[in-house]
């Protein structure tokens, strides 16, 4: 059942199912994303979380910050955990053995939404196999990657989501290195190519765009992938109060384009149309340099010998932005 959210005031009527006094860093985007996702629906939600910041900070015995059922198993298995909870739900529904309160909600048209949260380490890297398997099998669940482009929970090591030039604890900038050498992996397209009915990239700063996409994701049957930009005050090294500003810089510079890919399928599951829609176009596309300058993880790029990496960044972002626009125009 789609929750009606016309504007922010209406959204603020939501009663949160994620609680305070969790142990996340002040100013953490993860929390903002989790709140926006959970508040996007009034249906019951069941959550699986991969090992990572969100997990170690919201379920430290003897307290939990979750007002929904929640499970954590390991670092690399959030996708299969959510997928199997989804399968277990469907088996019990078919057998007529759901707990009475749950059955009542289902009868009222409020099917539980099963959501996995994992960081980019648990998604792009160690959890990729489980994620790919669960998407190929087509389970009905939503997977939200809290993408802060770094292994924040273990102290800031590079992941395959870390962008070029970022200094991390395992790709540190030094006298002969500008930091991370690889471009970021294109997770959104990879997941769309699994044939998932709905895949999108979001930023918590554009709350309405995020909520709308999550709602679209909840409406389709099958695996849904949401790649959420998650500015990390600790590893991007910006001030906690700047989380939303840094996120906006990412979106407005087109470093973090907001778009969705919809695979439309017929009743046999055959995809007959793939559409990429850009959901936000900055009025003034700001230079990438402004985004980089806001984050001390890129500070060393402003040294003369590293300026070429900033140029490379701009070129990469422009090329990608062009590519996305061309795909959108072509309707593929």
């Amino acid at each position: 059942m789609v929750k009606k959210i016309k504007n922010l005031k209406e959204f603020s009527l939501s009663n949160d199912r994620f609680e305070g006094a969790n142990l996340m860093c002040p100013g953490c985007s993860h929390n903002i994303i989790v709140r926006e996702v959970l508040n996007a629906t009034d249906d019951p939600v069941i959550v699986a979380t991969a090992t990572g910041c969100l997990e170690v900070c919201t379920a430290v015995y003897p307290k939990t910050s979750w007002d929904v059922s929640w499970i954590h198993i390991g670092f690399e298995n959030a996708a299969v955990a959510a997928a199997t909870v989804s399968a277990a739900y469907e088996v019990m529904k078919k057998k007529g053995k759901l707990p009475p309160a749950t059955q009542k909600m289902v009868d009222e048209g409020k099917e539980p939404k099963i959501v996995a949260f994992a960081g980019d380490g648990g998604t792009y890297d160690i959890g990729f196999q489980s994620l790919s398997g669960a998407f190929e099998r087509g389970h009905n669940f939503m997977y939200v990657c809290l993408d802060n482009e770094v292994y924040a929970n273990t102290g800031g090591q590079r992941s395959s989501s870390t962008p070029i030039g970022a200094s991390t604890t395992t790709s540190p900038a030094g006298s002969v290195s500008y930091g991370e050498k690889m471009m970021k992996k294109s997770m959104v397209e990879i997941m769309a190519d699994h044939g998932a009915p709905y895949v999108a990239q979001v930023s918590p700063s554009k709350w309405k765009d995020l909520v709308k996409k999550v709602q679209k994701g909840f409406e389709v049957y099958g695996p849904v992938y949401i790649n959420a930009q998650s500015a990390c005050t600790t590893e991007w090294k910006h001030a906690p109060e700047d989380t939303i500003e840094v996120s906006d810089l990412g979106v407005d510079s087109c470093v973090w384009p907001l778009y969705e890919i919809i695979n439309e399928r017929d009743e046999h599951g055959i995809i007959y149309s793939t559409k990429l829609n850009i959901t936000y176009r900055p009025k003034n596309k700001i230079p990438v340099e402004e985004y980089l300058a806001a984050q001390p993880r890129f500070r060393h790029l402003f040294k003369p010998e590293n300026r070429h990496i900033i140029d490379l960044w701009q070129k990469a972002v422009d090329t990608r932005w062009e590519y996305l626009q061309r795909r959108e125009e072509a309707g593929v």
Partner: peptide, 11 residues
């Protein structure tokens, strides 16, 4: 406006 509400990480 509820910006503070929606962006508060700590409810």
């Amino acid at each position: 406006c509820q910006f503070c509400w929606v962006f508060c990480p700590d409810i």
